[in-house]
Amino acid sequence: MPIKDGWFAESEVMWPGQAMMLKVEEVLYEGRTDFQDVLVFRSATYGTVLVLDGVIQVTERDEHAYQEMITQIPMHCHPDPQNVLIVGGGDGGVLREVCRHPGVQRITMCELDPLVVSISKRYLGASTASAFDDQRLTLVHADAAQFVKDQLSVYDVVIVDSSDPVGAAETLFTADFYMSLRRAMRPGAIMCNQGECVWLHLSLIAEVLKHCREVFPSVDYAFTTIPTYPSGQIGFLICSTTPGHVLRQPVREPEPAVAASLKYYSPAVHAAAFVLPGFAEKVVAAD
């Protein structure tokens, strides 16, 4: 793993020429699963850090900026989400956010790598991996691209918290996968997919948006700021099965208990997240 002289340096597969670095206080876990390299360390300034294949996935200091936005935007685009599918998300952060909603009756989480879940429970149990005991959860360890093919008109909200589209996650950014998701979604359902960085992956974002627009009648793109992700920013593709759905405005307010628990998301931040810089808006708005 890339630790040298007490510093972790992120691998640069999809962002050549730059790397995030964090000072390491203690390595807590280092090993390899059937699918990927895993590193967990305690950093000097960002708390516990989870790294997969050399890429930062979670730090305790800033994880809420990602977990809340990838979850609360689609959850608040739906008037009454009762059945939710989480694809990936082995660190547990998206699950934690979905579990904040008392109206949710069933949660299915399809995570390919069981060891990521167990490692997250062990080292991130006080932050992201705090909701795996929720009675509404069914945890499935399977290839999501295959799993969703057997589902038909089941889910109100689908959240795809995948890693970058290299290796095992490549299939989660294809038109075939989005078509399978569409068939698995109920009328009026919302899908949110991790959407990469406008500073680094604009051509990839354009390609994935094209795939989504071939499948969903309403598609938009939002973003959040998060210091430890490449270039400090990551986006989300938000899709609805409803034609003309204005995704830039939440259809309901967070319940008071939910609002009190949030650190980043709010209705105002929801709307602002869709306001992109001009160079990105040209690509996102293009048909």
Rank of each mutant, 00 (worst) to 15 (best):
V160I: 15
A129C: 11
L22V: 05
V24I: 06
A168N: 06
V94S: 06
V251R: 07
W199T: 00
K23G: 12
F35P: 08
W15Y: 13
R42I: 12
V98G: 00
G278E: 07
A280D: 09
E25V: 14
F8A: 02
D5I: 01
D143E: 14
V49L: 11
A169T: 03
T138I: 12
V148N: 00
A19I: 00
K282G: 12
N193R: 12
Q67V: 00
Y29A: 12
V284N: 00
R248A: 12
W15F: 15
E111K: 03
Q249N: 15
D53G: 05
M1A: 10
C197P: 03
G6T: 11
C192L: 03
H101E: 11
Y221H: 06
P16I: 06
G17K: 08
K121C: 15
V275K: 09
A286M: 11
P102W: 13
E60I: 01
E281W: 12
A19G: 02
V49D: 01
V208I: 12
P267N: 15
E26P: 02
Y178A: 10
F236C: 09
D134P: 05
E68C: 05
A126I: 08
S162R: 10
A273C: 14
T33Q: 10
E214R: 07
D37M: 07
F132M: 05
H78S: 03
T242V: 09
F279P: 01
Q67A: 05
G88L: 03
L276I: 08
V219W: 03
V24L: 05
Y66H: 04
E26A: 06
S127R: 05
H78N: 09
P2V: 14
A271M: 15
T48N: 12
G278P: 09
E196W: 01
A257K: 14
Y155N: 01
P16D: 09
G89D: 08
S120I: 13
A142S: 15
P267L: 11
V84I: 14
G232C: 02
F279N: 04
E68T: 03
S43C: 09
G232L: 04
P250R: 02
M185G: 05
V219S: 02
L237P: 00
V84C: 06
T33Y: 10
E63P: 08
D113Y: 06
G103L: 14
P2H: 15
A129L: 09
P243K: 12
W7G: 01
Y29T: 07
S118L: 08
V166H: 14
A286I: 10
P277C: 09
E214M: 09
M179L: 15
L124T: 00
V13H: 06
D5V: 00
R32I: 08
V154W: 02
P243Q: 12
G92N: 09
S127I: 08
A129G: 13
L152D: 12
G47N: 03
A168D: 08
M21D: 07
Y123W: 15
L152W: 15
V154A: 07
D164Q: 03
V219N: 00
S118E: 14
Y264H: 08
D164K: 02
V284W: 00
V40D: 00
V166K: 05
V160D: 03
I3Y: 12
V215W: 11
L262H: 12
Q105G: 10
I86P: 00
T225D: 10
